[in-house]
Write a protein that binds this DNA or RNA. Structure first.
Lengths: 126, 126
DNA sequence: CTTTATCTACGAATATTTTCGTAGATGCTT
DNA sequence: AAGCATCTACGAAAATATTCGTAGATAAAG
């Protein structure tokens, strides 16, 4: 079940800030762009029907939580994105992402460490 | 001007195989999924109106070419994707892409070289 | 030359996503 | 308690994207 653009925007907010009522999500979105309250409400209701969120309806103001895993969703969307935009080549995506973003030394170190671990794992296969 | 999913699919084919008539593109798409000829025709006509393609109409069978740059398009889509799906962190995308894809030694070497070049560039700034 | 195949153009139907107005219920303020 | 604010539910409009049927023109085949 692939979230739409608006749904993903809301999921990101729920992942980052935890369970929230519609009002708060709508205000967060409105810091970026103008959207009516009932629009956000409707989308979140649909998300609930699709199982993307769950909600606590004990109080009048319902509180929504993400119901799909952030890492899993990222990885699904990433592999689809690699296929559609980078013709399936994860490496050209990595090269482009590294090349066009300012990356700190600490982050480069982290990536180097990951590469080392991958190389070691490769050698152990032999 | 952001291409839709169908438009991007066609652009990829034009980038990869060069200028093509509608018939050929449609047949390529149909190897993956079933789409009627006039559907593909219509989308390519719209792409032309949007400036995503240009076409040679000298012969009856029009030949379409991509009219936007592949690298530029990739980088635009990538940075948007990083924002919407990885909350703006290119590094977490890189880590995830490396982590979840089988990457050959040659490719790892290429990435390491890029990192070295980036580190050198960083040192020269001082 | 006639028939058949292929192509473009056009318009409209369908599907999907986003938008919001309105109504009715509940809570809050005075 | 009355009036105002806030919430959900619902339905339908608007915006966007995809789908394809049909008509008319051109080319190819017989």
């Amino acid at each position: 079940m692939k979230p739409t653009e608006s749904e993903l925007e809301i999921l990101q907010l729920l992942w980052e800030h935890g369970p929230q009522p519609v009002r708060v999500i709508n205000e967060m979105i409105n810091k970026k762009r103008e959207v009516g309250y009932t629009t956000t409400l409707k989308i979140m209701q649909l998300m609930n029907e699709k199982g993307l969120t769950i909600r606590d309806t004990t109080s009048r103001t319902h509180v929504y939580s993400a119901n799909i895993d952030e890492q899993k969703t990222r990885s699904t969307l990433l592999s689809e994105f690699i296929n559609t935009t980078f013709r399936g080549s994860a490496q050209s995506l990595v090269l482009q992402a590294l090349g066009s973003s300012k990356t700190s030394q600490a982050e480069l170190d982290e990536i180097k460490q990951l590469i080392n671990r991958m190389e070691n794992a490769k050698n152990e296969e032999l």
